[in-house]
Nucleic acid binder design. Structure first.
Length: 220
DNA sequence: TTGTGTTTTATTGCCTCC
DNA sequence: GGAGGCAATAAAACACAA
């Protein structure tokens, strides 16, 4: 898997990584103060073939792949400890018939690979967390929508109810103002009958409304 | 065989720590 | 100031499709 990132992304990842793995060997150094643009280095295969001044004594050495045996041994050592003290480096080098510098370089590159792998793992972990958070968010949004619809419906019913109450009230007043007699509408005509609330729709509120209606029929 | 992409080995330049 | 670490990068080695 190839991840292409620009410098800023990499820096962000590094920061994240160092936060997630504070104890890991690779303490990411703080951003260099007054970061100078890196000087483009000159190359020239002269490095390897130079007669002198080449660190590690790789003079005249052609770049050569390490044998499976050597790699296995190095991997074993890396597995037990990612850091390489100079004593171990020299011992390993002589055991494997390599230059100590080669051993150091191998560890260097191996640490870099290990770090990249860790980063990729961390990335996939965070990505799956992010994905499930997105899904959860969708569910919650759908739920909010549903609840809003229910709320609108409840508002309508409440409106209906209060209109019915008002109507009852009005009729009641008319009854009182007119002749006390047979044609006065009784409070029992105020009924919640036309209100077809879904069962359990208003919950406890429905009981309260019944109480209110009863109370009104008593005192009006 | 050859072009192309990936991996591995090695170098360079900079930084930190002792 | 030197040793050692790291990022960036070059270049050899390797894998593999066309």
């Amino acid at each position: 898997m190839i991840i292409t990132m620009n410098r800023n992304q990499i820096d962000d990842e590094m920061t994240l990584f160092s936060q997630l793995h504070p104890g890991d060997y690779g303490q990411i150094p703080p951003p260099p103060r007054g970061l100078k643009p890196r000087r483009r280095r000159r190359r020239g295969r002269g490095g390897v073939g130079e007669a002198d001044g080449v660190p590690g004594g790789l003079v005249g050495m052609k770049k050569r792949k390490l044998s499976d045996q050597q790699v296995m041994m190095l991997e074993q050592n890396f597995g037990s400890e990612h850091k390489l003290e100079s004593e171990r480096k020299d011992r390993l080098a002589s055991e494997l018939g390599l230059d100590p510098r080669q051993v150091a370089v191998w560890f260097q590159n191996r640490r870099a690979r290990w770090k990249n792998k860790k980063l990729e793992e961390e990335y996939s972990k965070l990505k799956s967390l992010h994905d499930s958070a997105i899904i959860e968010k969708c569910h919650l949004q759908a739920e909010v929508l549903k609840l809003k619809e229910q709320l609108g419906e409840a508002d309508k019913q409440i409106h209906k109810l209060s209109s019915a109450l008002e109507e009852g009230h009005r009729k009641c007043r008319e009854g009182h103002d007119g002749v006390n007699g047979s044609n006065s509408p009784s409070m029992t005509s105020i009924s919640t009958e036309p209100l077809s609330l879904p069962p359990g729709f208003l919950g406890d509120l429905a009981y309260e409304l019944d109480d209110i209606l009863e109370w009104l029929s008593h005192y009006m």
